[in-house]
């Protein structure tokens, strides 16, 4: 990643589609600038010499806690189906996702 990465409309469209966040035509330029500045920050960090440093996934020096394999939850179906925009026969309904 070079520190001269500049995002254009195409990249903004792709990122907004992947994130399912709509970006109005008038906002594209501004969003592109903001995203570019984030990339610049990463480019800056990439310059740090990390030879001999193990990749880190989490900043905490702790390991995963585990829970026993026990069923502790009961149905909350009636409550959550009410929250859904559409439901029928105890199923959530969404716009068709396959042709």
């Amino acid at each position: 990643m070079s520190d001269k990465t500049i995002l254009g409309k195409h990249e903004v469209d792709t990122i907004s589609r992947l994130a399912a966040i709509s970006v109005a035509e008038s906002e594209v330029e501004q969003v592109a600038e903001k995203l570019t500045s984030i990339l610049d920050l990463f480019a800056q960090m990439e310059k740090v010499n990390t030879d001999g440093v193990a990749p880190m996934s989490h900043p905490l020096d702790q390991v995963q806690r585990l829970r026993p394999d026990v069923v502790t939850e009961t149905s909350i179906r009636e409550k959550v189906l009410k929250l859904a925009p559409s439901s029928e026969d105890n199923l959530f309904l969404v716009p068709q996702v396959i042709d």
């Binding site: 829970r67 394999d69 069923v71 939850e73 149905s75 909350i76 959550v80 026969d89 105890n90």
Partner: peptide, 27 residues
């Protein structure tokens, strides 16, 4: 083969009524 889900205490029993085994995390 477990009784509960990988990250929540919801049951994984097969064949239950739809949406009765999904808690807030699963949702």
């Amino acid at each position: 083969t477990t009784k509960s889900k990988i990250f929540s205490g919801s049951s994984v029993a097969y064949g239950a009524e739809p949406n009765t085994q999904a808690n807030l995390l699963d949702l």
